[in-house]
Amino acid sequence: MKALHTLKYWTILILLSLSLQAIGQEKQTITATDYSNQQIEMADAMRSNGKIYVVVSVILILFIGMSAYLVILDKKVTALEKKVKESAQA
């Protein structure tokens, strides 16, 4: 009985995944030509004059600053927890 159950389970699973495959054909695939398609407008100017690096470094600096803040906050909470633990024992 248990074997039949397992068989049923796997058959459903396989059939389901087959149907996924069938519908999956409709997916829009990305080809190598999409990477070189010059018809589509992209931020090429920012790349060629290097200005994009300015933007990326601004964003990185922001996040570094914020994570430093987060680390300090984390340490403060740890210190408080230690204090609380000590006063609980006392």
Binding site: Y35, I40, M42, F63
Partner: peptide
């Protein structure tokens, strides 16, 4: 894992903005 978090977010910000992406109509950058 907190160090990993910061490293992965930094990677995401950099790679997400700098790596080559497919040039697709409407979507663009």
């Amino acid at each position: 894992w907190k160090v990993l978090t910061i490293a992965l977010v930094l990677y995401t910000l950099w790679a997400g903005l700098m790596f080559q992406v497919p040039r697709l109509a409407i979507l663009n950058e």
